[in-house]
Write a protein that binds this DNA or RNA. Structure first.
Lengths: 327, 327
DNA sequence: TGCGGTTTTGAAAGCGTGTGCATTCATCGT
DNA sequence: ACGATGAATGCACACGCTTTCAAAACCGCA
């Protein structure tokens, strides 16, 4: 039922090796014979079995993509660009969705069993041991959106502190006095860096946060936390959010309370997801250089796959302040 | 370097067959021997090579997921639910991103070369021949979000006409008189059905569209087309959009022009994506039963994979009207 | 102890492909 | 015309695993 190279060989009256060579670019075979074989193959609907091929060749052309809940606008935006980048390099993304509660390890383990050539990890927590085991299995990994402490793997990450420093400048320039913070999930790398970056930059200006709350990076949580902030005593005149999704929720909260943004309260986020530009939000935010991040990550990864080994490198990409109407 | 079953066999002092059986659930092997082998395997960091396994076993556990541009909120929402569903059935999603301009065929072809067990096709156009070839290759496909004319494959699709009939009821109930339409890309199945469904339902009430325009299913295009509608002569008092993304753009356009929604102009969409519930939009829309769609599609697919063959079936899932503030 | 019957077990035959190696064939220089 | 060179070709092995098959080990029971 399944058509194999032998079938094509029989049909074309050549050996199976010839068929293999016809499909191997640069192999030693007569051009017209190759053409004939390819024609026969097409007629029979034959395509080399990539599973079998990878068994000898070593490479599968598969890249594991570990990603969190795709319903988050940032993650889906990122995945879109990443998957395009992977395909444009002739590779294929094997999706490894990891829900917030789940462990990365068993999921990545399974992907490794598929003999993926490498992995891009954009979600969940990954420790040094995991990185080493993966690399030992012949699948280098690159971590995106955070830096692995202990440096067990390459990583590409936006400079969160620099981004927050820009936000701080803007807060000063717009004369904000009572600044509140809505962070994301506590254990997240980006959350820690963004919070630290903001407080550090503020204190360099002799300022500090009046209040800090924690959401979970969703729009709903941004709404909930902002409502709490804006109805409490000593209402803030600016709310800095750990990401755009929460900032969007915060804007909605402000509007529900009849407050004007940015006059009564300035609100800003981080990432510059597509929705940030939508008119009712028009969110002032820090643009996360996602395209550059993807490019750098894949460059790093393909270089490792090609055999380059050396100390893991960390690439920090500069963000850019994106001023719109909300702050 | 790569640890194989032979290594484990040598370490545990058994044959390679025993190792294989230790990892094969339900195989005939002594429990304590299995435990010992698994312990040795773990010690060596061994996992069966799924490529090699699939070479004999026939199944890879891979499901090709053909999907369009993930930056669209609907697609990413759908992919989120779909990928969870696939994993919860012990399968893995092989992502096949197909940009709007690209062909599905070569991409799916490549996925078939990976010996995927099946494919879910949620984007691009697929004809009968493609479906047959895929099935002949041992990979049944299920088409989601549209029905294959000629019925070459199973398909699951929301009942767009019924959804639009509900919209029409609502338009009548809110006493709308001048109703305009913003459609999506012309060649899309959903666009055709939704447009037809709306006009049919309206004419059943003795009404008709006053104007029809076409966007491309993005928020931006919804904004552009709505601006054109709302600044033209004979301004509509309701705009029905082909999907939520465009409806969100339309609401922004109305606001920019200082019009009140829904008093001056009612606006509605289709799908009920997460963003539709966000407060500044609070979009009245038709809820696309995505969870049920994914479940039905995967049920269909796994049944085919299990060997059931019969005439392709088409499942139509009923949508539900979701009334919020915008209409 | 001996026997039929049930598990366990290891050897070996694939699964579909790439490729090293030896062989054949055409080509070219002298 | 003849040997040297290089390309083209087919054979057979390797890749890592599952699974059939026959042999071996084990069980209960007379």
């Amino acid at each position: 039922m399944r058509v194999t190279a032998d079938d094509v060989a029989a049909r074309a009256g050549v050996s199976r090796s010839a068929v293999s060579r016809a499909f191997t670019k640069g192999a030693s075979i007569q051009p017209d014979k190759r053409a004939h074989i390819l024609a026969m193959a097409d007629e029979l609907g034959y395509r080399p079995n990539l599973m079998a091929r990878s068994l000898t060749g070593g490479a599968t052309g598969l890249i594991a993509v570990v990603v969190g809940s795709l319903s988050s606008p940032y993650e889906s935006w990122f995945l879109d660009i990443l998957s395009q980048g992977i395909r444009s390099r002739g590779l294929w993304p094997l999706l490894v969705p990891v829900s917030p509660g789940q462990e990365v390890e068993p999921a990545l383990d399974h992907a490794l069993a598929y003999q993926v050539d490498g992995a891009v990890i954009a979600a969940g927590s990954v420790n040094r041991k995991l990185a080493e085991r993966s690399t030992a299995n012949g699948a280098p990994i690159v971590v995106v959106g955070r830096v692995l402490d202990g440096g067990g793997a390459d990583s590409v990450c936006c400079d969160n502190r620099a981004g927050m420093a820009m936000i701080a400048e803007r807060l000063v320039a717009t004369n904000r006095r009572r600044i509140a913070w809505i962070g994301g999930r506590a254990d997240t790398f980006s959350n820690v860096e963004r919070f630290d970056g903001l407080t550090a930059a503020l204190s360099a200006h002799g300022m500090s946060l009046t209040e800090a709350r924690r959401g979970d990076y969703t729009t709903d949580s941004g709404m909930v936390q902002a409502l709490a902030l804006l109805t409490g005593r000593d209402r803030p005149d600016a709310i800095v959010c750990g990401n755009d999704a929460m900032a969007i929720g915060a804007i909605s909260a402000a509007r529900r309370l009849g407050l004007r943004v940015p006059e009564d309260v300035g609100i800003c986020g981080f990432d510059d997801i597509p929705a940030a530009a939508w008119e009712p939000f028009s969110l002032t935010t820090v643009a996360n250089p996602v395209t550059e991040t993807v490019k750098a990550a894949l460059d790093l990864l393909t270089r490792r796959i090609a055999g380059e080994n050396g100390a893991p490198s960390t690439i920090r990409l500069p963000p850019a302040l994106c001023i719109r109407q909300s702050l």
